[in-house]
Design a protein around this nucleic acid. Sequence first.
DNA 1: TTAGGGTTAG
Length: 795
Amino acid sequence: MTTILSLNSSFKFAVNENKTRRGPKRASEFINQYDPIKQKISNSVRSKSSVMKTSSSRQMENLVSYVEDGSVENALQLFDEMNKRSTFLWNIAIRALTSNGYFEEALDLYHQMRTEGVQPDKFTFPFVIKACGGCLDLVTGKKVHSNLFKFGLISDLHVSNSLILMYAKVGHIGSAEKVFDEMPVRDLVSWNSMINAYLFVNNGLTSLTCFSRMQQSGIKPDRFTIVSALHASSLIHSLPNGKQIHAIIIKTKSESNEMIQTSLIDMYVKCNAINYAERFFNLISPRHVAAWNAMIRGYNLNNKPLESFSCLKKMQENRINPDVISLINFLPSCSQLQSMFSGKTIHGYAIRIGFLPHFVLETALIDLYGKCGNPRLSEIIFDRMDQRNLISRNTMIDALVKNGRYQHALKIFRDIWDHDLKPDPTTITMILDIISDIAGLQEGKRIHGYVVISGFYSNTFVLNSLVYMYAKCGDLDSGRVLFDRILTKDIVSWNTIILANGFHGFGEISVNLFLEMIKKGIKPNSSTFFSVLSACSFSGMVEEGWKFFISMKSDYGIDPGIEHYGCILDLLARIGDLDRAKRVITEMPLEPTSRIWGSLLGASRKHRDLELAEFVANRVLSCEHDNTDHTGLYVLLSNLYAEMGRWEDVRRVKSLMESQRLRKTDGLTFVEVKGETFRFMNGDRSHKDSNLIYKVLDVILENRYGDLCKFKPVDFLQRMSKSTDWHSVRLAVCFGLISTAIGKPVLVRKNVRICEDCHCVMKKISLTCQREIVVGDSKIFHHFRHGRCSCHDYW
DNA sequence: TTAGGGTTAG
C-alpha cells in the first residue's frame, strides 16, 4: 500500500492545481448556482424537465425524500415549482437549508414565507432559530424570539431548547441562561443544550457544574451529555473530571459509541495525558478514522511530533485512508520538526487526492509554511483561497509576523474590516506584537480603544499583550496601570510586568512584584524565573539573582534552562567575575549555545580580558559547522578584534561569515511622530527631512569623543568612526528631536543592540539638549538623562 | 430541538 510519506511530493504541481481549482465544489459555490429566493422572485424560467412532474401528494413525497437524502438543490427546485405551499412544506424547505449549513438562505426563505402571509408554527421556529445561531445573526434571533409571544410559542419546549443554543452561539450566555431558567418544563435536550451552551463561551467549569446539577435533578446523561462533559473537561484541562466521566461511560456501557470514543481520546490528549489516550485507543476495535485523527493531533499537542508521524504511517498500514482532517491534524507536527519536506509531501498528496481547495486545510498549510520560514508560499495559498475566514487571515498575519513582514501583516489586518469581519483576541495580540516591535504607541493606543469597545476588556490574554505593548513602546507607567486593573491576572500577566520592569532597568520593582506574586499564592514557572533573573542581571543585583537561581530548583523543582544560565552569566559578567562565569559554563549540564558564548564574549570585551576572549573565540570558531546561526556572535567577535586592532582576524571572521552565507542584520530604528511610525536604516537619506536631520547630526557630532566616551585606540576610531556616524539610531533620534516639543522625551526602538559609539552619542545628546532619550534595543531599554544611562553602561 | 476528530495568538 502506498503511504502518504512515500508519495515523494507532488508539490511541484501545487500552484498550478490551485489555479485550476480542481477537486470537489465548495458548498457556497453550489448554493450560489441555485438561489431559491432570487429564482422565486423572478418567477423561475428554468427548464423543469429534470424534475419529476407529479401530483401534489407525490410532489410532497419527493420533497421529503430529497431532504432526507440531503439533495438540497433538488428539494428546493421542487419546492419552487409547487403551487400550493402549506406551512408544512415551508418548514421542510427551511429545514433542508438549515440542516445543510445554508443559514442565511434559510432565513431568506423564512422572510419570504412571512411575506407571502404563511403562518409559521412550532416546527418552523427551531430551524429558523438554529439558522440565526448558525450565521451569528443576533438581531434576527431577537426579533424571532419576540415574535414567539405573538404565536403563543414562548413556552414551547423545542423552541426554547433552540433559543438556548442560539444565544450561546452568538456569545450571549446570559440570555441563554434566562431562557433556560424561565422554562416551565425542561427535558434532557434542555439540559444538554445548556451544558453545551457554556462550551460555546469556553466556560468548561460552569458547563460541568450544570452537568452536576442535571444529575442531581435525577436526569440520566445520554451520549450527547457525555460528549459535552468530556469537551468541558478538556477545556479546563481537568484530568480528574475527565476520568470521572470515563467511569460514567463504562457504567452506562457507552464505550462502543464512536463519537464518545473520539471525545474521550480528545479529552485525554488535551489534558496532557497521552498515555491514557493511547491505552484507550488500543482498546478500540475496529479503529475509525476520527480516533486515528485524534491521536495524530494528540501527539503534536503533547510535543511528540515523531509519534504523530508514526501514527499516520500505522493508520495507513491498517488500511485506513487519511481524510482531510488527518492531514490538518498532522501538519503541525511537520512545523514542530521544521520539516518543510514532509509538509510539502502532505500538500502534494492533498492535491492528488482532491482534498484541495479546502479552506481549513489551506489555513493549516499557510501556518506550516509560515512556521517553516517560507511566508511566500503562505501568501500564494492565501491569495488563491476562494474562501477566507478570520482564522485564515489571522494565520496569514502570524506567518508574516514570524518572518518580519510587518507592513504586509498590518495591511491584512486593516483589510479585515472590508470583509465584514472583526478582529478577535488572536488578531489583536498578534498586531500588538508588531506594534511592540516598531514602537507604534499611538497605533497601540488605538487598538487599546478597540479592545475596550469590542468587549475584549476582560480577556486576560489581550490585556497581557497590551501591558507588554505599552512597556515595549516605552510607556511603562501605562503598562503598570493596566496590569493593576487586570481582574483575573494569570501567570503570564505577572511574568510580563516583572520582565517589563526588568528591561526598563527597574530590577528592584521586578523583585518586589515577584515576591508579591508568591505572597498571593501564584506558583512561578520557568518564564517567571527568566523574567526575574534577567531583571536582576540588568540592574546588577547579584545576590538576589543567585538566590532566585538556586531557589528555582530547590523551592519550586524547576530545572534551570539555558536561558536562566544566560542570565546568571550576564550577572557575573557585569560584576567582572569572569572566572566564576567561565566555571558556570564548563560545569553546567547543558550544551552552551551561541547566546551563552556571546554573553561571555561581551563580558571579556567589556573587561578587556583578551585571554578569555581568545578562549571563547576558539570555542566558537571550532564549532563553525554545527548549523547554529552564530551571526550575532561573529559580529561581536569581529568588533572585538577591530577594537584590538587585529585586522587580520577581523577579515578572517568576515570571510567565515561569507563562507557560511551569514549576513549582519541590517540595523533599523523606528520612531513615532504624530501617530506615524518612521523607519530609518543606517545612512538612510530617504526621509523628506533628510537634509535637516543630517545637519542636526553634524552639530551634535562635533566633539563627539569628549569626556563621556571611553578611550579607544586611535587606529580603531579612524577605521570605525565613519561607519557609525550615520547609524540609524542617530538619524531617528535627530528626527525625533526636531519633530517633537522641546523638553519632551524622544523614544526610539531598534531591532539590534545599540553600539557603544551610539551609546556615547545618546548620552551626549541627553546632556546637550536637556532631553530624555529612550532607546529600546533588542535587549533592554536605555533611558539617557543628563549624560547618563539607566544601564550604567553595561548591556 | 442537542453531540466527536478541523486551521490562529503569550
